[in-house]
Nucleic acid binder design. Structure first.
Lengths: 112, 112
DNA sequence: TTAATACTTAAGTATTCACTTGACAATACC
DNA sequence: GGTATTGTCAAGTGAATACTTAAGTATTAA
């Protein structure tokens, strides 16, 4: 197995995850959530944007599997979802591994 | 040290790296480069965009430390730069580590 | 039941950003 | 020298998207 198998729909996941991570506000949300679960309005308070904007960011984060939310009563609680992190970590690991394997082979040739 | 130290300018690096990774064409370029160094025009050939567009993507990738390029004669050779990968990997690892530490402490409480 | 809280949804705006075009520069080739 | 190759730069265009406003829904509290 040279690399993680290309499962159907996986590519789309990679796109969703890295697109979600591309926005600084969404990364701020993830940084806050890594300290523990937070409600939507508590999440919005320190950010200088409206609650509606935060909800939109949360939609993107949830679609990409980086955040999981659950609504109990009238408050929605948000927490980090490991699945999205794994997708990003795996893609980066694949790039690094292929690249470093190549450097190894190059080293072998130079050693001769 | 609970987390990687917050060095000055580090935040900007994180932003540059994840913004660069957010575009599907730039990720394709990195995937191609993880197989080995390639010239700009060879990089552009399989992509359905102009050479100028590829050059612009390369500028973003180089500014973020994900790619290193070197011009010899009239051909510029592009290769993956591990530094950019490390920035992304570190940020993800920090998020995961904080999150999982929290789950551990929660487990400890529940065990009592 | 009235009021306040905690979101939700839709529509509009303004900016960012990927991409093209076209002109130009430097190097290799004949 | 002349010509093809390989890349660079600047300006413009169109689409994606982050954000706001405004109106609405469901849940809790008084």
């Amino acid at each position: 197995m040279p690399e993680s198998k290309a499962m159907p729909g996986k590519q789309a996941d990679v796109h969703r995850v890295f697109h979600a991570l591309g926005d600084p506000t969404r990364r701020l949300i993830l940084e806050k959530l890594s300290a523990g679960p937070v409600s939507v309005s508590h999440l919005a308070a320190p950010l200088n944007i409206t609650l509606a904007a935060v909800v939109q960011h949360l939609q993107v984060l949830e679609d990409s599997g980086l955040v999981h939310t659950e609504k109990i009563g009238r408050v929605r609680t948000c927490r980090i979802d490991s699945a999205g992190l794994s997708v990003a970590e795996q893609w980066l690991a694949d790039r690094r591994s292929l690249w470093e394997k190549r450097l190894d082979r190059l080293g072998d040739v130079l050693d001769e």
